[in-house]
Design a protein around this nucleic acid. Structure first.
Lengths: 118, 118
DNA sequence: TCTATATTCACCCATACGGGTGAAGATATG
DNA sequence: CATATCTTCACCCGTATGGGTGAATATAGA
């Protein structure tokens, strides 16, 4: 059962999990663009481009401003801060210096490394 | 067509895009656990748990050590470093100080924010 | 060897993506 | 007003996910 409701972090990670969408973000980081402009830059149709943009908007990573018949898209990287915060929570587990510190602490307790007898 | 092949970053972001899998990572960050242990902690079946673990392994975030009939899982946060690096690439777009600087610049031009004439 | 437990495998089903095509709505332009 | 351009909407298809159940495999323990 889908017990969990869709969280902002879900939509964010799902959005950036696609290489095309990451490329779109990279493209928008240099300048704003219309849907047509993005479709021209990537080997996908206009419709597919529109769908990708919708997912990026759903994650809050892209903003849209309708000017006449043009939909001008701009990057909004702010939601990435939450993702960075989540990842940062695990930084001590891969950072060399902090990992060494962790080993020191766990060794003090006589526990090999997070291993825990059931 | 699936022009792009699946990149490591794809598998990583897909893996962490699910709240159950993030919860599993959080659980493993405190101590190692077996598949059964994880299944007991979350309201999903053993089989579903096994599948989630497979996706986490595919992303390199979880390591498995078979001890007898037990499969002991441990966290490997190292792949998150690549995700952090990718996100860090966009940090200047949401950082407060740099954002304030951007507002100054755009206000000087009399443009609300990120508006850019084609 | 026999039995209980742990894990995976092979399916099933519903939903969501990613891609496409074609038609319908807006909007600019002659 | 008529036409061309831009964008979205409504479908279609193939694949992948997330959940389940039941059977098969592997190991521990009596």
């Amino acid at each position: 059962m889908g017990e969990y409701r869709t969280l902002p972090l879900d939509r964010l990670f799902v959005a950036v999990a696609d290489p095309t969408r990451r490329a779109i973000l990279a493209r928008l980081s240099s300048s704003d663009a219309r849907v047509t402009d993005l479709a021209a830059d990537f080997p996908i149709s206009l419709n597919s481009t529109s769908k990708h943009i919708k997912m990026l908007e759903r994650a809050g990573l892209v903003r849209r401003e309708v000017i006449g018949r043009d939909h001008v898209l701009s990057l909004n990287a702010a939601p990435l801060a939450e993702a960075a915060a989540w990842i940062n929570h695990y930084k001590s587990f891969w950072d060399d210096r902090l990992a060494a510190l962790e080993i020191l602490v766990t060794k003090k307790r006589g526990i090999p490394k997070g291993r825990k007898k059931k």
